[in-house]
């Protein structure tokens, strides 16, 4: 294992006003200081820094560091969650500005826990991480019927759909939902990700999912990879 380290964005000084220092923000995100983050990002906006730069140079370094630690299982869910929430606080200020600059989301993602299952802690962390990474997400919650996944994917013209399942009795509905996408003639239009503690890569292969994410970071990386894949277009 390589111990995750803070990756300092190259040449950040050139993109910030003279004397500007991102270190406090990197640390605030790392430690989950959402109030500090909010204030600091406001300050950065007021200082006229480009929102894209705030995101890449200010918010991501601390976020990615904790993400790497989470994947390596060095930090645990509560710590990942507070970092994700701090990140979210910053993003809430940045996102409208990015949109105004005509920045598009990385992709459209529809997420939910499959039929019969009420567990949503895992998938809500995946959702917040995807959101923070720049995806636009519709989260359908728990106990989601295949038809609802399909309808929402159609409505949103989704690029990706994610099915979470935590029970031995409900992983079956990951399979069923994929079959329903097939039957509806939409399978080729979306990339399907699955996850949840009892699932495995083998299961994903068996049921014909496009990817399996062992954790929220894997989910983000997979989503980023798969978005580049060619798909049939939504009508």
């Amino acid at each position: 294992m390589t111990t995750p380290t803070l990756k300092i964005p190259e040449g950040w000084e050139g993109r910030a006003p003279d004397g500007w220092d991102w270190v406090p923000l990197w640390e605030a995100i790392e430690q989950g200081g959402h109030i500090f983050t909010d204030e600091f990002v406001r300050g950065a906006i007021d200082a006229g820094i480009n929102p894209r730069v705030i995101l890449d140079d200010g918010l991501f370094p601390g976020f990615n560091l904790q993400g790497d630690r989470f994947t390596e299982q060095i930090i645990f869910i509560p710590e990942m969650l507070i970092t994700a929430r701090a990140m979210k606080a910053g993003l809430a200020l940045i996102r409208p500005l990015l949109a105004a600059n005509d920045e598009k989301p990385l992709g459209i993602f529809v997420m939910g826990t499959v039929l019969g299952d009420m567990h949503d802690i895992g998938q809500s962390i995946v959702t917040i991480m995807l959101e923070n990474a720049g995806f636009e997400i519709t989260n359908l919650g728990t106990d989601v019927h295949p038809d609802r996944f399909i309808e929402t994917a159609m409505e949103q013209k989704a690029d990706l759909v994610g099915f979470s399942a935590l029970l031995s009795t409900t992983v079956y509905y990951q399979k069923v939902t994929i079959e329903e996408f097939e039957k509806a003639g939409h399978r080729g239009k979306v990339n399907i990700l699955i996850g949840g503690a009892p699932t495995t890569q083998e299961w994903a292969n068996e049921i014909g999912a496009d990817g399996w994410g062992k954790d929220a970071i894997a989910a983000v990386n997979l989503a980023k990879d798969l978005i580049a894949k060619n798909r049939e277009a939504w009508a």
Binding site: G32, H34, I35, P78, L81, R85, A89, M118, H119, T142
Partner: peptide, 28 residues
């Protein structure tokens, strides 16, 4: 599962006593 506050309670319960993350969780 039907309780919206479960996640926050569960996050608190995951920690051991004395973890300062608990306060941060509560405030965020």
């Amino acid at each position: 599962a039907a309780r919206p506050d479960f996640q926050d309670i569960f996050m608190e319960a995951l920690c051991f006593p004395g973890d300062e993350n608990v306060e941060l969780l509560a405030s965020a």
